[in-house]
């Protein structure tokens, strides 16, 4: 049973179709990337899933059924638009929002103590939020997102405007959550973070699904049919299946014919006693795939 599932959802604002027939499912316990350029429809998709917006058509299932008030207590959401009550004390703010997630006051208090300790905020607990630095406010926001121990965690652009220290902190938190078995949906346009963290992903552009699947599969699917080779004694000429040879920065890129396989080329190289230092099937980075999908072919789903 998927933790989070949308099927053929459509949402139009005025004349603009923000989400157009989007379908994907998030499996329990994985980190799932919801990718797309700015304005692609990621946040709208999340808001539909969380019942903030109603879709024009389509079906949404969260934690095994339609969204309900009880389920809100089992979901943690870090919105893209960050912000907390500015005019009240840090601990008061965390406690209020934690009790709104269904925690009783005692549990909220105990967990808050632990989190304040973990995020180094104990000394600031009595300060008003507007007196805290941006980094501290981000940590406070994270505490609010996690304090009720959600089964499903939805984080929207978690790394935007963060310095490297805080970026690392959020990554650590997300990994820790995955270890605990929390399902995580991460909306972002920062591909390097996705490559580092996500198991599977969906890529949306202009409201439509462009790519969907496991990270490795997608990269294999988009491999350029090229192998990178570095040898100590040079490469022989006339390798079977090789269309073109291109020297790149000390190594050589062998562009293969469509019917050739990297495996056959490797076999031939070994047979011809080439001393290999490197043999790598060139997989594109997610960044390259992203740019290719978004700028190049917009018609395939």
């Amino acid at each position: 049973m998927a933790s989070f599932e949308v099927e053929h959802i459509v949402k139009t604002f005025g004349s603009q179709r923000a989400v157009d027939d989007v379908t994907f499912a998030v499996e329990p316990g994985e980190i799932f990337g919801l990718l797309g350029p700015n304005g692609a429809g990621k946040t709208t998709t999340i808001r539909i899933a969380l019942d903030i917006f109603k879709p024009d058509s389509g079906r949404v299932a969260v934690l095994g059924g339609p969204m309900s008030e009880d389920k809100k207590n089992r979901i943690g959401y870090l919105p893209e638009e960050r912000g907390l009550y500015q005019d009240i004390r840090l601990e008061q703010c965390i406690l209020y929002l934690a009790t709104l997630k269904g925690l009783d006051r005692h549990t909220a208090q105990t967990r808050m103590e632990a989190y304040l300790e973990q995020f180094d905020l104990v000394a600031h607990r009595r300060k008003k939020l507007k007196e805290l630095s941006k980094g501290m406010q981000q940590k406070a926001q994270l505490i609010v997102t996690l304090i009720h121990e959600p089964e499903l965690l939805i984080v929207d652009e978690p790394f935007s405007a963060l310095d490297p220290v805080n970026t690392q902190m959020i990554k650590d938190v997300l990994r820790e959550q995955r270890r605990k078995g929390t399902t995580i949906v991460m909306c972002t346009h920062q591909m390097n973070q996705v490559e580092e963290l996500c198991d599977r992903l969906v890529l949306i552009n202009r409201g439509r699904v462009m790519l969907y699947g496991a990270l490795d599969e997608i990269r294999r699917q988009y491999r350029s049919h090229t192998v990178l080779v570095r040898s100590l004694n040079g490469l022989p000429d006339g390798l079977v299946g090789v269309e073109r040879v291109e020297p790149i920065n000390g190594s050589v890129a062998l562009h293969l014919r469509p019917d050739a396989s990297p495996q056959a080329v490797l076999q031939e190289l070994v047979q011809r006693s080439v001393q290999l230092e490197q043999f790598e099937v060139a997989l594109p980075t997610l960044d390259e795939i992203f740019i290719e999908v978004v700028t190049g072919k917009e018609t395939t789903a």
Binding site: L50, I52, E69, I75, Y77, P79, L84, L97, L100, V144
Partner: peptide, 20 residues
């Protein structure tokens, strides 16, 4: 207005219903 201004609104509406 305050909750729109300080962006707490999204956290609130994913914690309880707009009616509540």
């Amino acid at each position: 207005v305050e909750e729109k201004e300080n962006r707490t609104m999204e956290i609130l509406v994913t914690s309880l219903s707009p009616e509540q």
